[in-house]
């Protein structure tokens, strides 16, 4: 009898602590219930370059919204949109984007900006890919079994890389093909350590250039074009979740609008001598 009474007291105690703690948190967040928060799921390349750190404060100042940028791979950003965990996504993978909108998860696709991918490698370029097209370069690397580091994380860059491999008609496999499973920054570092070839967006490469010995070998190929698009998440798909569609639209208007585009155009020029991204709406 008394033994069970103790257990009851114990459980009651645990429950009350948990409830109190939760309600304290709930209360402390109460003031944010007015829907001013926008969750932006985006790619590590836009985030790590520092572009969003420039864009978001200006947007927040112009509107009453508060943006929470979550940097993940394109694949995960799209998945977050599908689950309704994000209000707006900024990604770079055409096929995925099309599917996302066609299936009704996003309401519209808007071009924002582009940069390009480059294939980089050791200075001596032992497989001699310099000046080739992307597909030719990949075939050469594969034939030589030269070390190549892939993101391997379902990101936009990774999707682009796979797209090129598909063009070559070969499936990369073997010890020379390294899947890092990490963001672009880490992948660049791994490639640098191993003096391997890899493909990166130009922005991240420029941002990291000072810490790298790898050089650009292939660029300017049409297939390496890397457009970013912004997609607001469709609130109709998640009626039980409070999606901030108005906020998402405001963000879309901002980033494709005059101010947003100007910031994109200027970003990185001072530091790297060239822009990291090229605006697509107002050039």
């Amino acid at each position: 009898m008394s033994k069970f009474r103790f257990l009851k007291i114990f459980l009651f105690f645990m429950l009350s602590v948990i409830i109190i703690t939760t309600s304290v948190f709930a209360f402390s967040c109460k003031k944010k219930v007015k829907n001013t928060e926008i969750i932006l799921a985006t790619t590590t390349s836009t985030y790590d370059s520092g572009l969003l750190d420039e864009l978001i404060p200006v947007f927040e100042e112009e509107t009453t919204y508060k943006v929470k940028p979550i940097a993940v791979g394109t694949g995960e950003a799209i998945a977050m949109g599908e689950r309704g965990e994000a209000d707006v996504i900024l990604v770079h993978s055409r096929e995925e984007e099309d599917r996302f909108v066609e299936e009704g998860y996003g309401t519209e696709r808007r071009d924002v900006m582009h940069n390009d991918f480059v294939i980089i490698g050791p200075e001596d370029d032992h497989s001699d890919i310099s000046g080739l097209t992307a597909v030719e370069a990949y075939i050469t690397i594969s034939a030589n079994e030269a070390s190549f580091v892939s993101r391997g994380d379902d990101s936009g860059t990774n999707k682009k890389e796979i797209e090129i491999w598909e063009e070559t008609g070969t499936t990369p496999q073997g010890d020379w093909y390294i899947e890092s499973g990490q963001g672009m920054g880490e992948t660049l570092r791994i490639a640098d350590e191993k003096q391997a070839y890899t493909m990166t967006d130009r922005g991240t490469y420029l941002a990291q250039q000072n810490n790298l010995s790898l050089v650009v070998l292939v660029e300017g190929d049409e297939i390496l074009f890397n457009p970013y698009r912004v997609i607001p998440v469709n609130p109709e798909k998640h009626k039980d979740i409070n999606i901030n569609y108005e906020g998402a639209q405001a963000f879309v208007e901002f980033i494709t609008g005059e101010k947003g585009q100007a910031i994109i155009k200027e970003f990185g020029v001072a530091e790297y001598g060239q822009p990291l991204f090229y605006p697509d709406v107002i050039k």
Binding site: T22, F25, A26, S28, C29, K32, V33, E37, I39, K68, I70, R83, G84, E85, H238, D240, I241, N242
Partner: peptide
Amino acid sequence: RSGMLGFLKLMYTPP
């Protein structure tokens, strides 16, 4: 957001 406590809007906050 779709979780049990999603209405509390705790995701991506210090709490």
